[in-house]
Design a binder for these strands. Structure first.
Length: 478
RNA sequence: GCCAGCGUAGCUCAGUGGUAGAGCAGCGUCUUCAUAAGGCGUGGGCCGCAGGUUCGAUCCCUGCCGCUGGCACCA
């Protein structure tokens, strides 16, 4: 078995600021990356910025900022969020990077073209000049006009585009996702309900998709189509390829061969089709290896309502982090939600969780044991560890993994009470504490993927024979 | 409209063809080593509604109501 593990987070659109949903995905990806490191694998963890979309150009115009400057600034916001959460990307690949990403996308295009899967076709659609976008009839109101610009007739526009022969890959993709293909390994979609959704989608048949835009429509922004300076590569064909371009594709073959294919793509449910159908189809066409799995998380509501700009309830994760600390945010996001169901983010619930689990649970246990251990000789850390999370790597159910760890915390509290350790003295007391401290060392070890900073502090505090008393890890709030 | 899933204690959720479970919140109590923390105990549920199958259904089937997701070029 290979010992490398390549994990990606989705490449966020950088036309707006990051919200709490981005924080969730970053933290999930980071926990997976750190877990695989804990298991001894060499890990590459990537995200990036989807910077070539037309929406970025429009948002930049609204902000009266040059496009490159705009996407650089907004990409920076996502990187800052990652840093604030202790999410350590090894690579943050920008889509506007002309040195690595542009040639990588053009290479993918040429490989697909070489397989005969790219062809020219007249595209005809209803174009709204106000939005500078095409619409399908069902996206319009009863007057056949777009919702943003009522009263404005849409134009029927014809344009030459390049199309990708997606239809050709329906059966192959179905077999690969089912795990019944003879030549390719299974592309696993987690959880199963999302796999079923994709299989149902494939069963209905596929039509070819447009993968380029005219310079005019693309506002001269994006990766030029190889051999046709009048067209730009459509953002989806281009953005997915960041997973490869960030790992050497098109500019460093040995690096690419070391890491590709991705072991897991962490994504939100809204972009599943692009990852489970389009992306593997592009790779099949290019005769490149396919990713091994796709982890699909769901979305947050805020106090019971959908997050939206118009409602003004978009949660800025940086504010929550500065109020509660990054470790508390990581804990809340990972422990208190099923990754496979929508969850409601509310600050009162956050505070409750913080106090009961982190302050009263983990933090208090660490404090009380450190106090009990004062002026005693404790058996130093022997480095022996038990991985409590053996089943975690299958489905990545962060909430269940943390529940398992918190059971051990509870058991420690119970043992301290039952044995009334504070009434013991001398060797009896040291022996009883040795037992508890072994568990605490084990807790911190198992906590590493989820709360890396806290795990580090506890490991350091409990490594020697003299255990220092320190300030509370999580001071109570309220 | 069609397809899939969900609807269980105040809150978040687990669960099984045979007297309903956990965590948090509440209440009582024990304890004092600890961040007024910890342990133990306890109250509280027509298991969405209406039928059906069954000796027996929260769990299986049907219908209805409510919510969520999918139904192609929408990050």
């Amino acid at each position: 078995m290979t010992n490398k593990f390549y994990v990606t987070c989705a490449i966020p659109y950088v036309n707006a600021r990051p919200h709490i949903g981005h924080a969730l995905e970053f933290v999930q990806g980071d926990a997976i990356a750190r877990y695989q490191k804990l298991r001894g694998r060499q890990v590459l963890f990537l995200s990036g910025g989807d910077e070539n979309a037309l929406k970025n150009v429009q948002a930049a115009q609204d902000a009266q900022t040059p496009v490159q400057q705009f996407v650089d600034r907004n990409s920076g916001l996502f990187r800052t969020l990652a840093e604030n959460l202790d999410v350590q990307f090894d690579v943050f690949q920008k889509g506007s990077d002309r040195e690595k990403h542009y040639p990588a996308s053009q290479k993918l295009w040429q490989l697909c073209a070489g397989s005969g899967d790219i062809y020219e076709k007249e595209y005809e659609g209803l174009y709204c000049v106000g939005c500078e976008a095409f619409y399908t009839p069902d996206e319009l109101d009863e007057n056949g006009e777009c919702f943003e610009h009522p009263g404005k007739k849409l134009d029927t526009v014809r344009e030459k585009n390049y199309f990708f022969r997606l239809s050709r890959y329906r059966e192959t993709l179905t077999d690969i996702i089912r795990g019944t293909h003879s030549g390719y390994g299974r592309l696993r979609i987690i959880p199963e309900k999302r796999e079923n959704e994709i299989l149902a989608f494939l069963a209905r048949g596929l039509t070819d998709i447009s993968i380029s835009r005219s310079n005019e429509r693309a506002k001269n922004w994006g990766v030029p189509v190889p051999g046709d300076p009048t067209q730009r590569i459509y953002v989806w064909f281009d953005a997915l390829n960041i997973y490869q371009s960030g790992a050497g594709f098109g500019w460093n073959d040995s690096l690419y061969r070391k890491w590709w294919p991705a072991d897991i793509h962490v994504i939100g449910k809204g972009i599943l089709r692009f990852h489970a159908v389009y992306w593997p189809a592009f790779l099949l066409s290019a005769k490149l290896p396919l990713p091994k799995s796709i982890f699909v998380h769901e979305y947050f509501t805020v106090n019971g309502q959908k997050m939206s700009k118009t409602l003004g309830n978009v949660i800025d994760p940086n504010q929550i982090i500065s109020k509660f600390g990054s470790e508390a945010v990581r804990y809340y996001l990972l422990a208190k939600f099923s990754p496979f169901a929508d969850g409601d983010f509310s600050e009162p619930e956050f505070t409750k969780t913080y106090n009961s689990d982190l302050a009263n649970g983990l933090g208090n246990l660490v404090s009380r044991v450190a106090a009990l251990a004062q002026r005693l000789k404790i058996t130093p850390d022997d480095g022996k560890r038990t991985l409590l999370l053996k089943s975690f790597g299958d489905q990545y159910q962060f909430n269940l993994a943390l529940e398992t760890i918190w059971k051990v915390i509870k058991e420690c509290d119970v043992r301290i009470n039952e044995r009334r350790i504070w009434t013991l003295s001398g060797g009896e007391k040291s022996a009883a504490l040795d037992d508890i401290i072994r568990d605490i060392r084990n807790i911190s070890y198992n906590l590493t993927p989820f709360l890396p900073r806290t795990a580090g502090i506890i490991t350091d505090q409990f490594k020697g024979s003299d255990i220092p008393k320190r300030d509370p890890l999580f001071p109570r709030i309220g």
